[in-house]
Design a protein around this nucleic acid. Structure first.
Length: 311
DNA sequence: TCTGCTCCCCGTCAGCGATC
DNA sequence: GATCGCTGACGGGGAGCAGA
């Protein structure tokens, strides 16, 4: 079995174990199964195959080749099970409602709702981008660009937010390069062609991390000297206006790029939630272990008190 | 220094459920 | 029924580490 295949097979088995764990949680057997799962997971992370849980997986993976084919056969069934699994947020919130002290994952107020009411009318279908440092850049109607720093780290040096189309990009495709902080302290966008996005005059010039701290977000304007509409923004063509096959192809490419971009962001968010979920479960395990220990001690104490003394 | 392994992160695809 | 968001699965790449 190749390294990659073995790795995936182990992953799959671990995942199956985790799934059983989650299901058993819903049945109320939280502590034991969770602990098992956690230990299995942690053991795998450390690569120590002498520990029982991993040894079990390793045995499956390395000595029982027939299990692999069975695993392939069962993959559809497993997939069916997995596909019905509720989201992490859902599971966590269910757990939270059962047990006080477990923080809930907040329903995210989407940036679209909160800060960008006009996004729906914008040409760029997804108007919120995130830089590699977590900054959110939103393009609002009229070419206004908003930058939001979720953290307090501020922006150091040059960052690039580049959106390109794989293959041959259609004319008009958005290419945005974001220079977060230039040497002279100003912030600029470089959009398609030679357009420069400059800070809105009405906005007070403030460091981005300050803006994040105060909630004030600087706004930016795409300066397009020759066009009424900012050319760095891809305007959505109405279906009726698409005639030639080339235009249709461009539209399809644009849609695909948009979908990929959205999915990319969704995957990031999903992974973030998953991490949060796992952290929460781990902290719960810790709490329950302490609780369990206390109860055992209490039991022993009661036993000592109640049992008749023997010589 | 090189090689192999493991872990982690990311982008993409596929499939499902929810919503319109 | 179409669209959208979410998430598991998959494959790739980089970083760190241990052994040759």
């Amino acid at each position: 079995m190749s390294k990659c295949a073995r790795k995936k097979y182990i992953k799959t088995n671990l995942r199956q174990m985790t799934m059983e764990t989650v299901e058993s949680q819903h049945d109320g057997n939280i502590t034991a199964s969770l602990t098992e799962s956690k230990s299995a997971h942690m053991q795998t992370q450390t690569g120590q195959n002498s520990i029982p849980a991993l040894a079990q997986v390793a045995t499956i993976a390395e000595t029982d080749e027939s299990a692999e084919s069975e695993g392939v056969i069962d993959s559809h069934k497993r997939r069916e099970i997995l596909s019905r699994r509720p989201s992490y947020r859902k599971i966590l919130n269910e757990l939270s409602s059962d047990v006080p002290g477990v923080p809930k994952i907040e329903e995210e107020k989407s940036e679209e709702e909160g800060t960008l009411p006009n996004i729906a009318t914008m040409a760029v279908p997804t108007s919120i981008y995130q830089t590699s440092t977590g900054q959110y850049i939103a393009i609002a109607q009229g070419g206004t660009i908003q930058i939001s720093n979720p953290g307090s780290d501020g922006v150091q040096g040059l960052q690039a937010l580049t959106m390109t189309n794989s293959g041959a990009p259609p004319p008009g495709a958005t290419i945005v390069q974001y220079a977060a902080q230039s040497a002279d302290g100003t912030q600029q966008f470089f959009a398609l062609g030679s357009q420069v996005v400059v800070q809105d005059e009405e906005t007070e010039l403030a460091p981005s991390h300050m803006a994040a701290a105060t909630g004030d977000m600087p706004t930016y304007q795409i300066r397009a000297p020759t066009a009424a509409l900012p050319q760095g923004v891809v305007m959505a063509a109405s279906p009726g206006s698409l005639h030639s096959p080339q235009q249709l192809a461009e539209e399809a490419t644009r849609k695909r790029e948009l979908r990929l971009m959205k999915n990319r962001e969704a995957a990031k968010e999903c992974r973030r939630r998953k991490k949060e979920y796992v952290k929460c479960l781990e902290s719960r395990v810790a709490v329950l272990e302490v609780q369990n220990k206390k109860l055992r001690e209490e039991l022993e104490t009661l036993k000592d008190v109640c049992s008749p003394k023997t010589d």
